[in-house]
Design a binder for these strands. Sequence first.
DNA 1: CGAGGTATTGACAGTGACTCTCTTTTGAGA
DNA 2: TCTCAAAAGAGAGTCACTGTCAATACCTCG
Lengths: 217, 217
Amino acid sequence: MRSMAPAPTESATTVPPAPAAKLGLRERKKIQTSQAIRHAAYRLFEEQGYDATPVDQIAEEAEVSPSTVFRYFPTKEDIVLTDEYDPMIEETLRARPASEPPVAALREALSDSLARVFDKDATETWQRIRLIREVPALRARMSEQSAETCRLLARALAERADRPVDDLEVRIVTGAMLGALTEAMFSWIDSGGSKTLTDLERLVARALNVLERGLTL
Amino acid sequence: MRSMAPAPTESATTVPPAPAAKLGLRERKKIQTSQAIRHAAYRLFEEQGYDATPVDQIAEEAEVSPSTVFRYFPTKEDIVLTDEYDPMIEETLRARPASEPPVAALREALSDSLARVFDKDATETWQRIRLIREVPALRARMSEQSAETCRLLARALAERADRPVDDLEVRIVTGAMLGALTEAMFSWIDSGGSKTLTDLERLVARALNVLERGLTL
DNA sequence: CGAGGTATTGACAGTGACTCTCTTTTGAGA
DNA sequence: TCTCAAAAGAGAGTCACTGTCAATACCTCG
């Protein structure tokens, strides 16, 4: 658990049909292996918990060697924390008109992206979020990723507002947004039962409202 | 690096004169040891970097056994991340009149607490913050602590506003505040030269303004 | 002041997440 | 089918911990 090596190249995650056709055998096997590892891991985490599951066991369950697991996922945490929506949000955000105030733009960008993330693989997404919520190491690591997201958002926002990327106000806006959204997401998980997308969207909407209102209660 | 065991009991951190008199030899030695470890660690981190400094070496430099290091600091990260100001902020926040809006109350509470933290041991504080800024593992761990702080803030705010602790709006307000303040702090470090307290206060003030303004640029 | 109990320490033997290096296997292209 | 490069496996090594056990140091009470 040291540096943050980038996740291995891997475009589609849980999408077998669409783009699988035109890839060579090699590429297809890579996707298979990565999925085998992830699925094995989720299965074992579910049964015995994250901390109680050594990587060697995941490797065994996935029928690969331990070294291969680390080749695909630089850290154990990355098996859970492979996310593909950061760039998606940035892209969507960039597409919003520059005249919109930041919070409004984010609102639109999010409602687009959330839907896309969810109908990809809803149950695994849910399982992942729950793990992140419960395992300290994952939570910590995910904050790190959020910081990364923060920088992405900042870039997009700065560009929209025609300010430098490291502008203090831009950074503060993104920091606050991310903080608020994270709380909204966790609150969604904490409220056990309601795990539908619309529930999440409602929470996010409320979060953005609070932000626009100047954090008054 | 799993659970978050509480740091060992140790009230004063870098204050030899005042309360040192009435403690037994045992207690005094404990404080000495803990300081020896911390100082040895900071020295080595400065020279060769955090990641490149094994705990065994810190132990050697501090002239204690490796096991003793772990007895004092449950993880290597904790050597850097022992913070005492979280409860301080909460207490100060609680003392503000309930009629004040959240952001205003935080503004006052912060200007109180920041000063107190800083004139305790300014140079070590600075060194610590820089480490946190630069070492991913520390950053991640510190976010975890922030989440804890978040809960403290939420508790104080909820009480003030006479709402339940897990109220969504309360959580969002605290999340956003923490996010904004973290960015302000990092921005302070990034702006290399200006490491005075008043500079930080200025940044914090701007951050709070942005929040009050509803995150507009 | 000295005996006895307890807190603290050190030595040591794990475990588990990585890292590195080296060899073997296996798709891909000629 | 042959060759080359990418990928997988094997194995040794590092380092952050964890748990146990025996030795030592303070403290308290007689």
